[in-house]
Design a protein around this nucleic acid. Sequence first.
RNA 1: GGGCCAGUAGCUCAGUCGGUUAGAGCAGGGCACUCAUAAUGCCUUGGUCGGGGGUUCGAGUCCCUCCUGGCCUACCA
Length: 686
Amino acid sequence: MRQILVTSALPYANGHIHLGHLVEYIQTDIWVRFQRLVGNRCVFVCADDTHGTAISIRAKQEGRSEEAVIADMKAAHERDFAGFSVSFDNYGSTNSPSNRALCNELWQKIRAAGLVVEKSVTQLFDPVAKQFLADRYVRGNCPKCGAPDQYGDSCDKCGAAYSPTDLTNPVSALSGATPELQSSPHWFINTEQMHDFLATWTRSGALHEDVANWLAGAFLAEPLRDWDVSRPAPYFGFEIPDAPGNYWYVWFDAPIGYMASTKDWCDRVGEKFDDWWRSDQTEIHHFIGKDITYFHTLFWPVMLKAAGFTLPKAVHIHGFLTVNGEKMSKSKGTFIRAATYLQSGLDPHYLRYFYASKLTPKLDNLDLGLEDFVAKVNGDLVGKVVNLASRTAKFVRETGLAAVYPDDGGLFAEAAAEGTAIAEAYEACDYNQAMRRIMALADRANKFVDERAPWTLKKDPSKAAELQQVCTVALNLFRQLVVYLAPVMPRLAEQTGELLSSPIGSWNETQQPLVGTAVNEYKHLLSRVDMKQVEAMVEASRESAPSNEPAASTPAAGGAGTWNDDRSALDAEPLVADRITIDQFTAVDLRVARVIEAKEVPEAKKLLQLTLLLGGDEKRNVFAGIKAAYKPEDLVGRLVVMVANLEPRQMKFGLSEGMVTAAGPGGPEVFLLGVDSGAKPGQRVH
RNA sequence: GGGCCAGUAGCUCAGUCGGUUAGAGCAGGGCACUCAUAAUGCCUUGGUCGGGGGUUCGAGUCCCUCCUGGCCUACCA
């Protein structure tokens, strides 16, 4: 029996769980349930990731404490996970006493190992908010192209990367004050000392070959840079004991949260922590998304190694979720929260099955095609698997299963033998292959029922024994499939246990037929999905109507009159605290303009070239970064709002004489400002 | 610009070490069945394996090159 500790990445306490997150939790939970089913000791822990600047800012905006914010989010996360049958043994928080204690312990050991170095860092400091500013909380003019209101790390307009101290006219997004340069001590972990260890560990089999190759090329080919793990006060996190006024950076304490959650579980159930994190007997498996690969494959192993803990046996990395082949989109309604799915009435296990049918050990993105989803659930689960019980159970309602397992031509034995390959596929996270094999078995079982036609036997009382035999075989083949599917469809396994009067609790039950038990009345085990349910869920997730349609015509799931507007957009671009005068506003000459020409700029990735008419022959040539969101032909003729007195800017493709106004985060999600009908080109916006 | 990955049927994808006539599921077409949730079974249409070149007795598979898409990285506006 193996002893296995499994983690999923800690969701950040600043947002709700959505279908993208669920890829990971479902992938992990299936693996965990599989391990338990085959008889391994498998403990699954997770926690909320609670620290960092984003939480503080949100708390401030909402006028309550950080603790209050994270408590609410934790409760919401746990509800969502429970709704999708994610079977954590413990769900903790990085803001816990156990995590603080473990952070201290690791820190001391990493220091003792000689890996900690102190260096002075010069950063922008907000004199009003009295804190240092992370890159994204500094806005200013791009040092390269001069574009206004850019983040401190890179420019949306020209893509230039720079440091926040390079911005011209920098402004704090927190207070609107002009930040000042200020130095402060920071503590770093010198990962370069562990270079050789990492070179070996990344090739130890813990990582997919592609990942090891990427690390070798992108990081390990040259000396590793020191990793800055401290932040000066104020910061929502744990204060570093031997560096008062400084806090551990969220990515230092977050992975330690895996350990803290394990510790909490140990304390609760009477286990020893060292058996799980300081033991050769325990395999540690992390499941993560590819976006956080290097934290888990470089820094984390270094921390564990330096502090003398067990290294991960494997880090399983998955890709991102797309919906209908595209990035999840709030405007298209494909940014679907876990809670919205649950409220829609769709069975959460359907999503588990769908993800399982798509998941492989590769890092590829996974697409949730909504039509595909409906077809798979209805075709595979209802049409093939559950159909076996549905078409035979009632014939043995009175007799129960035969006392001796009849001759089935070797079907059960063949399917039992297939168990090895299915188990290997689960173990390797190749659920796609496991599902394919299971469905192939379902096909064979349905064929058997078709050939033996129990409905014909039913008509001839002298064939009652044969009828019972045929149904005993069919129901055993069904039950075998359900056991194979149990890691994915735990609820179905329970229901099947009730139907056949014998609970399912072990993988071994696929190897031995069930005989002589009572068969209870058949009730639908799963119901078909109607595309309309899915469409309703998408509608409930849609945040802003794509056209001028009033939002009120599409009430959200919460009922009429609710608009379901969360604050995610605000969080992405915090309100500017700095007030302006009316004069400053009127300095911006906003005008209604008609797009009279729009064309592609072939060499440009993001730009369209627009000719805007302000009336008469007053025209402006404007380059707009909206190529991913609009087609030129859809723009010609429409009215937009432009900044008419913006300093003209020489761009690679020509002179840009203004700017069209739009909302949205960028890329395909750009929404041009329009005006209500009646407005005329040239009119000023007041 | 540099690097990495991918491209196989309408869709989603298998395809081992280079080895027979390139497979599956879904979708499409036909037939059967009527127990089952319009479920199931049988038959069937559909591919220049992104293009081109090369190595080889033999290439979806190996090499070169080009095209397309994605990711990483650098730069330009």
